[in-house]
Design a protein around this nucleic acid. Sequence first.
DNA 1: TTGCTAAGCGGACAGCCGTCCGTTAGGTTC
DNA 2: GAACCTAACGGACGGCTGTCCGCTTAGCAA
Lengths: 192, 192
Amino acid sequence: MRQNRDARLRSDAQRNRERILEVALTELTCSADAPLSSIAKKAGVGQGTFYRNFPNREALVLEVYRYEVQQVSDAASQLLETCPPDRALREWMDRLAQYAVAKAGLADALRKATCSRGSLAGLGYDAVSSAVELLLRANEDAGAIRPGVTSDDFLLAIAGLWQIDPHGDWQSRASRLMDLVMDGLRAGAPGR
Amino acid sequence: MRQNRDARLRSDAQRNRERILEVALTELTCSADAPLSSIAKKAGVGQGTFYRNFPNREALVLEVYRYEVQQVSDAASQLLETCPPDRALREWMDRLAQYAVAKAGLADALRKATCSRGSLAGLGYDAVSSAVELLLRANEDAGAIRPGVTSDDFLLAIAGLWQIDPHGDWQSRASRLMDLVMDGLRAGAPGR
DNA sequence: TTGCTAAGCGGACAGCCGTCCGTTAGGTTC
DNA sequence: GAACCTAACGGACGGCTGTCCGCTTAGCAA
């Protein structure tokens, strides 16, 4: 009987999976839309193996950047310890946007994940989602935002982030959006 | 020398274009992701002809629903005549969401159009964009929203609409989003 | 009518995604 | 260590998008 869930895979399967991720990282950072088939080939696995591990591009990207995503998600609680809740929320959004823009293809993956929740659950979207929940509750408790906002509401509101062109003046477009959303959230706040 | 810009096309080209649109309407309403190649075939034109007219799916969809999109865009000024500006804006958003959800594939097309502005300019996105501008200016003049919001800001803020699943409870998700955005816009309004 | 020319045509083609299914080999049991 | 069972493999394949390029024909002029 196997112990940890990682080892639920057969040893060769495990190796393959890791090799794919390794190759994918280098390929994707080089060119965001590198063909999945060429990643498979360079990893030395067949198409079938590839798609069994990662049913589509989004799943792969989310997994490749899992560490980064987890990083951002974890930042939520740290921020809450050092800033007032509303500043923490805003700061956190900034970081999320930062990563989404920096890691090419990540924004798209997150967007798709936001739509088809459940299908990609547990791949990194969950982490984001619960980080949002944490931040929203803290703000709600502090009376900094209107009560009853769900993480779904929030993620829908910042969906615009996922389609900002990383070239050009993305910083200002993003922060204008985030300002607007923050103001929206603050409206109707009991004010602690 | 030809007169109107429609006739800039050779007569056979014009016919082809119309036949494609005709077929596309029926095919797309039947199945949103009908293969473009089959639309071309059923319209009796080659791939080349098809793609010369509509470089990609979005261009086709936007053109097929041009009438509807124009309809919604035109509604802006009518709404402004009958409601206070902020109600007009909100009502207009409702209609936009309605159409985007109803006409399968339209939301996606609008989303893509929002990203790559310019490439699809004049195909229906322009109409939307200027309708937004109209509404925002009216609200700004009335002091109903904060000054300086661009139509780009606005469209980015409601980008979430384009990725709401048309099945399920889209109405409530959409209106929660729109409420949030409206509140965001109202924040910092001089209040006439 | 005839001839010219460029706009337009349309099918072949290449690249990518995702699936399917016959084959291989890891792990377990005796 | 042999035999078995099934998870995993991997490549062939089909469908779709979008491009390219040699051929056709509409429209015009003489």
